[in-house]
Structures are given as C-alpha cells and as structure tokens.
C-alpha cells in the first residue's frame, strides 16, 4: 500500500517536473533572449566545472610555467614534462592562461553576487521604507538616491579602493562594490512599491489593522519578488562591471586571478603590442559572454516579470 502511494506520488512529481520543463521550454521559445542568456552563462559554468575536474587549476599562480609561451609552445623551463606546452599558453609572469580563466570566472561572479545581493537587499529595504511611509522619510531617501544616481558610483569606489589598498581580498572587493550597488535598485523598486501601495489588498490589510512592517514584508514583498529577482540580475551585472573596471585600473585583489586583474596585467604588460592574443583574447571573450548573458537575462526577465512589456509590436 505504502509502496504504491510513493510510486504514484513519485510518478506524479516526475510528470509535473517534466511538464514544468516543457512549459519552460515553450516559454523560452517565446522569449529567446532569456534562453540565449541562460545558455551563455551555463556554458561558462560548465567550462569552470569541467576545468576544475580535469585541469591543473593551481597553475593560475605566477611562475607556474615559462613566460610568454604561445599555445602548445614547448616550455623550456620544464623540459620533458611540458613539451606539449599549455592549451592557452602562458602570460608574461608565467601563469597558465587556461588555469587563470577556470579560477577567474567563479571569483569574478562571486564579487558580483556578493555586491548584487547586498545591493538589492539594502535597496529593497530602503525602497519599501521610503514608499510605504512616505512624507519626510521618503523625501530624504529619494533625495539621497537621486544624488547617488548623479554621482558615478565608480568614482566613489576609486576613493574607497585607493584608501583600503593593502591586500584587498575577493570578498572585500564585493563588499566595497556593494557600497554603491543599492542606489539603482532602491529607485526602481520604490517606484513599483508606490504603484502597489494603492492596490486594494494593501488597503484591506491596512484597514484590518495589520502592522506596517507585516504589510510591507508579508503582503507586498511576495508580490514584488519576480520584479526584485529580475533587478537582482541587473545589479549583479553592474557590480561585475564596476569591479572589473576597478581591477583593470589596478585597484583590485592583486593575488587573485580574477578576470579584471587579468585585464589589468594585460594593460600593464602591453600584451597587445606584443601580439599575445592568447593572453588578452580569453578574458575579453569570457567577460563579453558574462555581460551579454546577464544583459539578455535581464531583458528576458523584464518581459517575464512585467507583462505589460510583452511583445506589443
């Protein structure tokens, strides 16, 4: 009896899972930018996973091999063992570029996720407080947000990074970037809350004596979750943009092989003037894939969370 029911329920979940997958597939076909974006990021993640499983990622450190080796060029510093060279060659300081890519992608994504998550959380809280309470609270928060939008965040980040400098870690980098990552979410989510505040169910909750706190976080927040999820992708993208920019300026974690630091070393050693395409090519390609992927996912999620945008032309 029990086995029968578990079988049946397993069958049911299998079906619904399959159904869900089919539904998702159908939706992706209507919303190709979401699909392409997810595919771009998924292929990068797959690359990292396979890389960690099969490649010697440890060679991201300097002096792991001879310097300036083109792909598959025999390594004169490790004769006998490294006659086949390295798949993507080495950089000026003897890092294996392939290892740098495998180790660098998750580090860069990690900075983006830390900053994006903090940014969106702080932004959401500020947006709810401002829009729900209104009055002078709203005025103060909105004015600060407006000022923050006019001042380019990266300039403030440069001042912060110049002053921390000594031995920034990847996590600290994420924290630093989050200092300016809350501004844009705070503004856009506030606008959404303002619209939502006027809706009937909020009115009813207020009339029935629910506290402001639980109206905000139990009634309105779940309804805004899709929108907040969509803005999370956007703020992860801008956090990565800011962090890579800072790193390329030489204000990043020097001992970590993030993608931005790889760009920095490329600029520092003029790899282009030496024609070392295997060194500057991979980080450019990977960063382009990350940015375009996140951009397409944001556009796709926008359409999903905001049905008014759905294909009007």
């Amino acid at each position: 009896m029990t086995t029968a029911t578990t079988d049946a329920s397993a069958d049911l979940t299998k079906k619904t899972f399959r159904r869900r997958l089919e539904d998702f597939g159908r939706y992706i076909r209507r919303n190709p930018s979401l699909g392409v974006g997810i595919a771009l990021l998924a292929s990068l993640l797959l690359f990292v996973i396979i890389g960690y499983a099969t490649y010697e990622v440890e060679r991201f450190r300097p002096l792991s091999g001879g310097p300036d080796l083109a792909p598959f060029e025999p390594d004169p510093y490790n004769p006998g063992t490294r006659d086949g060279g390295y798949i993507l060659g080495t950089d000026r300081q003897g890092r294996d570029v392939m290892s740098v890519m495998i180790a660098g992608i998750p580090l860069t994504l990690q900075i983006g996720l830390i900053a994006g998550l903090i940014g969106i959380s702080v932004g959401t809280i500020l947006a709810f407080v401002a829009a729900y309470y209104g009055g002078w609270v709203d005025q103060v928060i909105s004015t600060i947000v407006d000022v923050g939008l006019t001042i380019p965040g990266i300039l403030i980040l440069i001042v912060i990074a110049v002053n921390i400098q000594s031995g920034l870690s990847v996590q600290q980098m994420g924290l630093a970037v989050s200092a300016v990552a809350w501004v844009w979410p705070a503004r856009t989510i506030r606008a959404q809350v303002l619209v939502m505040r006027e809706q009937l169910y909020v009115e009813i909750a207020r009339l029935s004596g629910t506290s402001g706190f639980s109206i905000m976080f139990k009634e309105m927040l779940p309804n805004l979750a899709p929108y907040i999820g969509a803005s999370l992708v956007g703020s992860v993208a801008s956090a990565i943009l800011a962090s890579v920019g800072l790193e390329a300026l030489g204000l990043g974690p020097f001992d970590s092989p993030t993608l931005g630091m790889t760009i920095y070393w490329n600029i520092q050693f003029s790899s282009i003037l030496h024609g070392m395409w295997w060194w500057f090519g991979p980080p450019i390609l990977v960063l382009a894939m990350i940015f375009v992927g996140l951009f397409l996912i944001t556009a796709g999620l926008d359409e999903w969370s905001n049905p008014r945008l759905r294909k009007r032309v």
């Binding site: 282009i272 500057f280 951009f295």
Partner: peptide, 21 residues
C-alpha cells in the same frame, strides 16, 4: 544593441588589436 552590455574598454582592446596592431 548587444554591444551596449559590453564595457567600452573591452571593445577598445579588440579594435586596437585588429585595426592598429
């Protein structure tokens, strides 16, 4: 339009390699 997502300097690196180098 997709280029809008890419930071200017990545494009600069590509252009300098193709058209200058």
């Amino acid at each position: 339009l997709t280029l809008a997502a890419i930071p200017y300097y990545l494009l600069a690196l590509v252009l300098i390699y193709i058209f200058a180098f």
